[in-house]
Amino acid sequence: MIELKNITKKYEINKNNTITALKNINIKIGEGELVIIKGSSGSGKSTLLSLIAALSKPTSGEVIVDSKRISKLPDNFASDFRQNNIGFIFQKYNLINSLSVRDNIILPLIPMNLNIDVLNTKLQNVIKMFHIEHKENVLVKNLSGGEQQRVAIARANINSPKIILADEPTANLDEKLSLAFIEILKELKFQGKTIIIATHDPLFFNFNIVDKEIKIYQGSIS
């Protein structure tokens, strides 16, 4: 369960100038829900996701995940929290092009220094789940856009997180690939994961997978 209480996030541009990216946000997201965050460019969607992922800290207010106050965590504990709970899917995939599919997918596991067998089991699980086992040792830069997307999703899922965050996941995809992505979302939702997507792609509403829709306008929920 994710809860945002009275969240305000300000960015200090310089001494006299601050930008208020989010104002008094209150959100509750239940376990297993799929939530869409809508809003025009600059409205604060990405900021909201980074707060939930403990990538940044609110100026005031609290973020609570599973009754744990994420917003007050020191950096290292925030990282541990992400490692164990969050799978991030970025807009531009954010893969390392000159590494192989395998090396990209295991990136989140590296700091854990796992036994090689455990690591391989986890790897095999996700590459089968997202159908890229035949490309395991291919360099990412030699993959098609759709395959890259699947690698990014596999990487987000390798540590079996409970929460998936996606920032504009379909912005770079054509319609066919977007549809494929939605199929994957369905599968993830079926597995019981909580999914939060920041997007303004109307495609998501053609399927009834969305539990909740949050509209942000200039930093506030409208």
Binding site: E12, T59, S71, K72, P74, D75
Partner: peptide
């Protein structure tokens, strides 16, 4: 100040590393 959320405290956390 662990409870502070201003920029200064974040910078101090970075310095501690």
């Amino acid at each position: 100040d662990m409870n502070s959320t201003n920029q200064k405290q974040y910078q101090l956390e970075k310095y501690s590393f």
